[in-house]
Computed example of a mutant assay.
Amino acid sequence: MGAVAADRAGDAGASGTRGKVTITEIARQAGVSAPTVSRVVNGRADVSPSTRARVEDLLLRHGYRRRAAAPGTRAALLDLVFDGLDSPWAVEIIRGVEEAAHAAGAGTVVSAIHGRSGDAREWMRNLRARASDGVVLVTSALEPLLHEELRALGVPLVVVDPAGSPVLGIPAIGAANWSGGLAATEHLLSLGHRRIGLIAGPPRLLCSRARLDGYRAALEGAGVAPDEALVVPGDFHPESGFTGCNALLGLPEPPTAVFAAGDQMALGAIEALRRRGLRVPQDMSVVGFDDLPEVRWSAPPLTTVRQPLADMGTLAVRTVLRLARGEQPDSLRVELGTELVVRSSTAPPAP
């Protein structure tokens, strides 16, 4: 798969009932010349915004993709797409993707669509123009129409940490979030804690719901009735950990330990405790989830659940390249193991 001159949309592998369409036909429908359509396809700047939008709309509707180059004329090009890039978590995924892509001689384009339909459609237009060989979608959800467009273009897709239930037929790679939530909570229970707060992740995300279920399962397994007042919402950012911990401390009977479903929220919780003059772990134990590089240097170093973020990115690249070669993955759903890493932020509850 590759990118060279644009002359016949049908040669690019558009499938389904759309049929083949020439650049001339797209030009006729757009009311412009064929060279103008070629300039749009090749990303040239000398086209007015209104004309560009009209032509891109027709190219998208016809499932157009630039014709493939001869084998060996260029390296593969992969698209790595996030909902947002404002997290060290994303950096770890990128590290794994980049290492695997480099080893395979492939280039990587990183994008963020921020959950907005307009951003996603703009990304799709750019993807079509650069003739990407595969897409790795991270903790995001594409609207069904864009899934159809990828299918029509013949661009393989792999999802990492799917936002919702995995889409039928699309490979998904995640971590064992349920068992990670279970392990974090069981660790606190083993230290003697019985009132354990949870700062949860966004409920729209599958990983958040799995960690919450693991937390509840650990409590029930220990004969501790789950108290919904001890579960507060978060969004994986430090501010929500700070706010969530303050909410837990404001309860008539605060918890003696907190499980934050993401490391950044755990760091926010530690800051909330520090500002109240409370010590970790003497006054309250804190557990995170991710094992981001910075948490081993926090004060105190954070007990957390390690999920193999870089490995998830690496496996996603290997899977999407297999799909691009016409091979099928061994499994459509892969969960990599998580591991509890005990450091200094947890201890038995104070008398």
Results as ranks from 00 to 15, higher is better:
5 A>D: 13
9 A>G: 15
9 A>M: 12
10 G>K: 06
12 A>I: 10
17 T>N: 14
18 R>S: 13
18 R>D: 12
21 V>F: 00
22 T>F: 05
26 I>E: 01
29 Q>R: 15
29 Q>I: 13
33 S>H: 13
36 T>C: 05
39 R>L: 14
42 N>I: 07
46 D>M: 07
49 P>G: 08
51 T>H: 02
60 L>I: 12
65 R>S: 12
71 P>T: 09
72 G>M: 12
73 T>H: 14
77 L>M: 14
79 D>H: 13
82 F>G: 02
82 F>A: 05
85 L>Y: 02
85 L>G: 08
90 A>R: 04
92 E>Q: 15
96 G>S: 06
97 V>L: 01
97 V>Y: 03
100 A>R: 09
105 G>L: 09
108 T>S: 12
109 V>W: 06
113 I>C: 09
113 I>G: 01
114 H>S: 14
115 G>K: 09
117 S>D: 15
120 A>L: 10
121 R>M: 12
124 M>N: 07
127 L>P: 00
131 A>I: 01
132 S>R: 01
132 S>E: 07
134 G>C: 07
135 V>F: 08
137 L>M: 08
139 T>N: 15
144 P>C: 05
145 L>Q: 14
155 V>W: 00
160 V>N: 04
161 D>Y: 08
167 V>H: 08
168 L>H: 15
169 G>C: 10
170 I>D: 02
170 I>W: 03
172 A>H: 07
172 A>N: 10
173 I>R: 02
173 I>D: 00
177 N>I: 01
185 T>L: 02
186 E>K: 15
188 L>G: 00
189 L>E: 02
192 G>E: 10
192 G>H: 11
194 R>A: 02
197 G>T: 01
203 P>T: 14
208 S>F: 06
209 R>D: 04
210 A>C: 10
211 R>N: 08
213 D>P: 00
214 G>W: 02
216 R>G: 02
218 A>D: 01
225 A>C: 11
226 P>K: 03
232 V>L: 03
238 P>N: 08
240 S>P: 05
241 G>N: 04
241 G>Y: 02
247 A>H: 11
250 G>F: 06
255 P>M: 00
256 T>G: 00
256 T>N: 02
257 A>M: 04
264 Q>T: 04
266 A>I: 09
274 R>Y: 10
279 R>V: 13
279 R>Q: 14
280 V>L: 04
280 V>Y: 00
285 S>C: 05
286 V>Q: 01
286 V>K: 00
291 D>W: 05
299 A>M: 13
300 P>T: 13
301 P>Q: 11
303 T>F: 04
304 T>Q: 07
306 R>M: 09
308 P>H: 03
312 M>Y: 03
313 G>Q: 04
313 G>H: 09
315 L>Y: 01
317 V>C: 06
322 R>N: 13
322 R>L: 11
328 Q>C: 07
328 Q>A: 15
330 D>A: 15
334 V>S: 06
334 V>I: 15
336 L>T: 10
339 E>M: 10
341 V>Y: 08
341 V>M: 11
344 S>V: 05
347 A>N: 09
347 A>S: 14
351 P>Y: 03
